[in-house]
């Protein structure tokens, strides 16, 4: 199957990411993020399937001066498909959703997802009211995506069409309390991160 290399694509998207907050949906997007690094502003998820986009919305509403990128898979996005409508209504100017679409449930044996049968996530996002929504097939278009992630003053949705590679797993930390506290300390400072 044709498609971009998922880790090369993510590495380009996250090049010079500066203070970009990154939430990664469970499975390969979280491993891809870990393959690039392990940053305080990373929130790789190991469960809560269908929740990545809404975690991103929560951070985006709480931190309106920061930019929040959610990287997730097609299966994870499909499970939280209604959140595209919720996010479109909120229209956070600092939230970016990037779906790495390999048309598979990669974690469970490469069963085909709905996108393999024609479900068009960009059309869904547009139909929900997300104005800036696009599909990326060409690595040359990743530079524009990266620019918009940092510069666009509106909600952004993109599907990056990737090949179905089975790559060596790079595992991020899986202690949720640690991951949460690490991000809070980075955003709020060590002292305030201990308060709620």
């Amino acid at each position: 199957m044709n498609g971009l290399s998922r880790r090369a694509a993510l590495a380009e998207i996250l090049r010079e990411r500066n203070d970009l907050i990154v939430v990664a949906g469970l499975g390969s997007p979280a491993y891809d993020l870990a393959s690039i690094g392990n940053e305080n502003l990373d929130f790789p998820m190991w469960g809560a399937m269908g929740g990545a986009a809404m975690v991103g919305l929560g951070i985006a509403l709480a931190q309106p001066q920061r930019r929040v990128l959610v990287i997730t898979g097609d299966g994870e996005m499909l499970m939280g498909i209604g959140s595209l409508a919720t996010i479109a209504v909120q229209r956070p100017r600092n939230l970016r959703l990037v779906v790495m679409d390999n048309q598979q449930f990669g974690e469970t044996g490469h069963q085909r997802t709905h996108t393999a049968f024609g479900t068009d996530l960009v059309a869904v996002a547009r139909g929900c009211g997300i104005v800036h929504a696009r599909s990326i097939f060409d690595a040359n278009d990743l530079a524009d995506l990266r620019r918009d992630i940092h510069a666009l003053d509106d909600t952004l949705f993109a599907v990056v069409n990737i090949s179905a590679q089975e790559l060596p797993r790079v595992l991020p930390p899986r202690d949720g309390a640690y991951l949460a506290q690490r991000m809070r300390a980075a955003l709020l400072g060590e002292a305030d991160a201990l308060e709620t």
């Binding site: 809560a48 986009a53 929560g58 209604g82 949460a180 955003l187 991160a193």
Partner: peptide, 26 residues
Amino acid sequence: IHTVTLTTEQEGIALAAGAFLGGTRA
């Protein structure tokens, strides 16, 4: 107060988690 209408209640659980990460109460 910022109100968010959800399509399903589980969205609210994830939203509250994100709000906590960002330092806001939900």
